[in-house]
Structure formats: structure tokens, C-alpha cells
Design a protein around this nucleic acid. Sequence first.
DNA 1: AACGCCAATGATAGCGCTACCATTACGTTC
DNA 2: GAACGTAATGGTAGCGCTATCATTGGCGTT
Lengths: 344, 344
Amino acid sequence: MSKAAFDTIKPRRRSDQVTLGQVAKAAGVSPMTVSRALNHPDKVSDRTRQSVLDSVERLGYVPNRVAGSLASSRSSLVAVIVPSLSNSVFVEVIKGLQETLEGEGYQLLLGNTDYDLDREYQLVRTFMGWSCSALVMAGLRHSEASHTLLTNASHPIMEIMELGPSLDLNVGLDHVAAGRCMARHLLERGYRRIVYVGARLGDDYRAFMRYQGHREVLECAGLEAPLVELETLGSLEAGALGLARVSREYPAAQAIHFANDDLGAGALLAANRQGLRVPEDIAIAGFNGLAFGQHITPRLTTIVSPRETMGRLAGQALIRRLAGQHVHRKRHDVGFTLQPGEST
Amino acid sequence: MSKAAFDTIKPRRRSDQVTLGQVAKAAGVSPMTVSRALNHPDKVSDRTRQSVLDSVERLGYVPNRVAGSLASSRSSLVAVIVPSLSNSVFVEVIKGLQETLEGEGYQLLLGNTDYDLDREYQLVRTFMGWSCSALVMAGLRHSEASHTLLTNASHPIMEIMELGPSLDLNVGLDHVAAGRCMARHLLERGYRRIVYVGARLGDDYRAFMRYQGHREVLECAGLEAPLVELETLGSLEAGALGLARVSREYPAAQAIHFANDDLGAGALLAANRQGLRVPEDIAIAGFNGLAFGQHITPRLTTIVSPRETMGRLAGQALIRRLAGQHVHRKRHDVGFTLQPGEST
DNA sequence: AACGCCAATGATAGCGCTACCATTACGTTC
DNA sequence: GAACGTAATGGTAGCGCTATCATTGGCGTT
């Protein structure tokens, strides 16, 4: 006779996963005690805890985090929303976050907006549905819909990369100041005809802010601040293209301030290949402080941002907040450093 | 009188999130109909669907995915486990996965093992608790504990990067063949005293397999295949260090086969700085086909692996599988291409 | 000896959603 | 016109866990 014949009530369970209840039975305790033994080990006696852990091991029990999250209405997920994975800057920040948060038992839920605020909204919405412990996002600009959702959120929100009026926590740096800093550096070196080259500045607001700072300084010095805008975001090819466009559109240019190191290094290497002397024929500067800029000849003048540190600090602040501790600096300026190379 | 005085039974809900039930009430239908309107739109009438969507909008309802996943015992999460986020190779694969899967409504859960099989196990265990739709992991080697867990998993498992006997689906390339390919190239160019430089080959099994292929070819040609092993995984600094160690330990070396492009490019740029002629004084080859290797002078000889494509193919295969369709190739060789530069 | 206190454990009642059937209304068929 | 199929909707019963309160028993206090 088939086993099913006995099952008058058909069980709903589709997987034959071991459940907490089965562990409880095996250990001779109540489910609640198993839950405590696993999540609040100090709340059960040593004997009980050991017996529960033995049963867990023996049965191969894997806690169902979905059920746990539903019951407690919070999850061990931390959502991270970045505008791009092609740009190593965001990857390094993710790495910093990952290192700090994984150690505390959180898992990263990753989303990519591709610099699209609508996609950002969709991601925020989706991630909210996961009862995340926290939400980390790059940038301070959001759509109105996102803003509504975010202000009603019950978890901490960490905005990173830039600095300014934030929803909750903020770790980043001042991009306008960074733009000013590099512009001043170029002026000090004696360059006067300086072109800023960026890409999709309407989307990449931080690059736009750096341009703002750059322009401000140049205009204060009575100089023009021409802008060349490319289609492609950071890439070495785009940098080479940027150099070509500047040569064509601004043949008298003495220096190029690139929005990032990918562009800058691309231009520098292209100049090398073309036999252009850097900085004599054209000076080149970037932004980010990517490693390879310091290995090429001449070394790329750049502004170093502490990216992995930024991720780590953001992670640490979140951990503190989630542990119920006070976060001292809701806005944390990680600063930046001008790193002069021989390219300017 | 306080409102609470009426609440004899205190509700358990901690957040004041709008629920599906409230949407149902607002739309004048049953919760079940709201669920269908959102998840199986073709199962409800146009009129009902519209009315439900209106209520969703009006109330600002955000579906609770945790509850949904528990009830349906599957989630829209796809777990991705990689050994490193410092290596752009994995980031590019993640990008490919992300592009394909995000469009189909999946979210990526990201884990980093740092080349540690125990951490891999912990991650697998944790991610299993999330009832993921699929699990993507780099590599075919797992601890016994992971293996047990993985073979009992009810979701598809995609192993990427390398090729071989896999648990379920597999998209990757043959690293032994790649090692052979580069070794043959170096022999064809006339080099005889060739050193392989890698890092943590005990952990980085793919780099080790490339060395195997390399050694096989050299030994067939009656040559030795000395190995220099570094502490740090791919980085430009480590590459420079590798060059230095080879100069010291194998001063007669004619060519260096580096385990990856970061090392190769680091060595190449260091050679440039030191005035060593590449390839006359020392030939240098890498692996991966990273962009910047093709922008430096001389261009780095390398083997290009289609990384983003690999991620995309893996994502597409998973999507097919999750849609219940047949996946034609459970093992998919994405191949590789030798890209000779002037560095060899 | 009676009392309170605390640590350890258990029983109960959901968390917000969906699988699974039951039901309804309305055409179609012979 | 009775039987039948089908599309749309609803009711019920959980999914596997944890918050909350209740209960127990051992201990120190007066």
C-alpha cells in the first residue's frame, strides 16, 4: 500500500528540508529553545546549547532565514545600490562594505542602477520588500518616489561617495572641493588653457560637481573652463578619444583635467603611443587614485579618494547603528589627497 | 482616552507597512486576487487588475518578498559566490550575471570567500537558508561539507570560470589548455628559459592549472619549468616584485609567464621604469586580457577570456532553467584567445 | 518557612504571503 | 435544457520561524 494512502491531510511542504522543529525533537527541547540556542546562545544553558548544536550537526539543519526574517520582521540583508559595476571605484567601496558586514553576519544584496534614478527607485522598492537591515546607496540625489520610500524606511540608510544633506547617515567626500583642488594645482603648475573632459555629466553628478569646482577656480582666475563631454563613462578607450577631441576642438589646450583616472590614463597612454610629450605638449590629470595610474610613465597626477576605507567606515557605522549604539558622525568626510605625478 | 485602551489584543506587527490585505480591502477584492494581480497578471480580469494596481499605487504598497518567499518556498534571489572582489575578472562576471538576471526580476546576493573553502561552505549554508532560485559559484573545487549541501540543493547550481566535472551547470574555460597555449607561444617565439610566476597557487586553483599546462608543454620540449610563487594575489606591485624575484633567482630567464595580467602589467611597467627592454631583455606574458594591458607599451601578450560573456551566458542558462526550459549545454566552453602583444 | 528573584524553558499566536482547492458565473455543446 | 467546460475569484490552511508572555525550579533573604 502506498504511503500516500495514509496521508489524509496532504502536507504543504515541498522541500524535505530539516526544520527547527525536527532539531527540537531530536534534542528533546522545544522549538523555542532551539531558536534561542542558535540566535541568543547566552540565553540557554551550556548543556542544552551543546545538545542542540549536536542535533543541528547530526541532522544537517540549515536555518531558514526567510522564515526567521518574516517572524522577526528584519533580515540579515544589507542592500547596496551602486550606479555601475564597470567603475572599479564602486567595486572597491563594495569590497570595504563586504569585509566589515560579512564578518557581522550580514549578506549583501547588490543592485546596479546604471546611473538611472528610475532604476534606483525600482531597486529601493524591491529591496525594501526584503526587510533589509540597512540600505547603502551611492549618491545623495534620488527621485521623488525614492525619497518618499526612503524617508518612511525603518532601517538605517547610508548614502556614500559624496557629502551633503543626507537622509540619514553619510560617508563621502566633497567633490566640488576636489575639483577646485585639481584646478588650483593645474594653475600653480602654470597651465592656463585647461579643458575638463567628462562623460555623461548629466548622470554622473559627482563628476559634474568636480567640474563645478574646477570651473569656479578657473573663472576666479579670469580663465575660461571649456568642457568636452564624452558618451562613454570611464574607460581607457574613452580617454584616448577624449584626448583626440581636445586636440581637435581645443588645439591650443595646455592641460586636460579628466573626470576620472580611467579617462586620464587612457589619454596618457594614447599620448605616449602618439609620441606626444606629457606634460610638455599636454598635461593630464585624473581623479580617483587608481593603482595603475601610479605605475605608468609619467605617473598620472590625480586625487586619491579612500574608497575601500569609505566602504569600511560606512559598514562600521551601520554595524554600530544596528547594534543600537550611537553613531558619532552622521556625516563623515573621508577627505581626499592630491597626488601629483609627472603628468602635470 | 488613549487609543491603546481599546486594544485588548496587542497586535504583533511592528512596522506599519501596508499589507496585501489592506490593498485587497481598498480594491474590494480578496487578498488572493491581489496576489494574482501582481504575480500572475494574466490570471485576473483587466478591470480587477487595474483596480488592484490603483490601490497599490494609492496606498504605496510594497510587496513583502520575505513573506512571499516563505509561502512559496522560493525567492527571487540568486546567490553569487566569488573568491575575490579585488580581481576585476570576477567583477566582470558578476556584471554579466547582474545584467541578465536583474532584467528577469532576480536580485544578486553576493558572497566573497577570499579563496577559502571553509568560508565558501559558510556562504553556501547561509545562502541556502535564503531559498535562493539559483547559486552561482566560481570554481569546481569545494569542501566536502559544501558538496553535501550542494548535491542536496533543490535549485540549479552554476559553476563558472573553469570547466570540468560539475555538480549541475557549468560555464567556463579550460585553464590547463590556456596554460599550454601560452607556453607554446613562448616556445614559438624562441624563448627557452621561461619562469612561471603566480601567487597563492594552493588557493588559486585556476592559476595552478594554467601552470600545469605550461609545465606540461615545457617538459615535453625537454625544458624545465621553474615556478616563483608570490604572497599577494594579482596587483601591479606584486608584478613588480615578481620581476625582481625572477631577476634575482633566475638571472638567465628569457621570459616570464605570469598567472594574470595584473602581475604581468605590473612587471612590464616596472621593467619600463627600470630601463629593461621588453621583450629583448625579458619577455612578459599574462592572462585575462584586461583592457589596460592593451594600452601600455609594449602591449602585453595575454590570453583573453570572455568574462562578461561568461557571466551573461551563465545568467541566461539559469534563466532558461528557472523558466523550466531545457538547457542545451550543461557544460559550456567559452574558450579563450591568445592575444600576442609586443611584450613577447 | 514564606517570599521574591532570576535563569531556563515552554506554549501560544502570529509574521504577510501563496498553494490548493472550492465556488461562482457564464457560455457551449448535443 | 441538462450537462459540461472554462475563466475569475474566494476561503482555508499553512510556509518555518520568533516575540511575548507564562511557567518552572532553584537560590538567597528576612
